[in-house]
């Protein structure tokens, strides 16, 4: 028996598969890749996987459909959805399908490693209970309702928050616009200057670094104030997220 844990990565972007391969291969995993949902399902038919990663937006069959089919064939296999943009609806649908987790792009080696480990371990813990879920249809629907209610509230909060924040973000852009313009202009001027006086370029660069350093220094308290104001909101959001995860977990483990 192959002692290595089997990982399947389904993503139309080959880079994603390659990076999983690079990160996991020497750490006790064997990584297989598929560039579409169809190809992925084909691969699953031929052998068992310990964890499957799938992108959500793909040409042809999308990630959620792939998940659905995988869950239909082998419900014990943990599926982790890779998203570039997590929308509440997608997450809600995916939760119902029994997805083990989400991972947001961009992916760092650490994230890839930890999420894989987490998914595999959780799958081990829940192997027994999964059988129950499959049989207990009634509980499943009830859970669906509960989950959708919780997620609906969260989705509402998110959209409302976004809506209310819009004018401020817009205002930020308005303020930033002339500065960005100025920066672009300065950059152009700098390039022209570089061409004209190749010798002075290094000096100018040094001065630029200095100016940036000092600028950041004096801007820091204001950015910090922004963080301080945002901190309780982010904290609340994190709590809500944790709470929801715990809730989902509880519901799914029933």
């Amino acid at each position: 028996m192959n002692t290595k844990l089997q990982v399947l990565v389904i993503d139309d972007d080959a880079v994603v598969g390659r990076s999983f391969d690079r990160v996991l291969t020497n750490k006790g995993y064997e990584v297989a890749t598929a560039l579409s949902g169809e190809e992925g399902l084909e691969t699953i038919d031929n052998r068992d996987f310990d964890v499957v990663f799938t992108d959500i937006k793909m040409p042809g069959m999308d990630g959620l459909e792939v998940t659905e089919r995988i869950k239909a064939r082998c419900p014990w296999t943990p599926v982790v959805v890779i998203t570039g943009y997590g929308t509440a609806e997608n997450e809600a649908r995916a939760s119902v399908l029994g997805v083990s987790g989400f991972v947001n792009k961009p992916l760092s080696p650490e994230i890839i490693e930890s999420i894989t480990l987490k998914a595999v371990n959780e799958a081990k813990d829940h192997t027994d209970s999964h059988v129950d879920i499959e049989l207990d249809v009634e509980v499943h629907t009830e859970a669906t309702e509960k989950v959708s209610f919780a997620t609906r509230i969260l989705a509402f909060g998110k959209t409302t928050g976004m809506f209310l924040a819009t004018p401020f973000i817009a205002l930020g852009y308005v303020f930033a616009l002339p500065l960005v313009g100025l920066y672009q202009f300065a950059k152009l001027a700098q390039e022209a200057f570089k061409k004209a006086h190749p010798g002075a370029a290094a000096k100018a660069k040094k001065a630029g670094v200095r100016a940036k350093n000092v600028g950041l220094f004096f801007a820091s308290p204001f950015i910090a104030l922004g963080y301080v104001i945002a901190l309780p909101f982010v904290g609340f959001y994190m709590f809500a997220k944790l709470g929801r995860e715990a809730h989902d977990k509880k519901v799914l483990s029933r």
Binding site: N213, L216, F217, I223, Y227, L231, V234
Partner: peptide, 18 residues
């Protein structure tokens, strides 16, 4: 001076802060 520079990536900041 970098000691007093802000973390410009909010995600990184909040993760580390929490």
């Amino acid at each position: 001076i970098t000691v007093y520079h802000p973390e410009l990536n909010p995600r990184k900041f909040f993760d580390k802060a929490f």
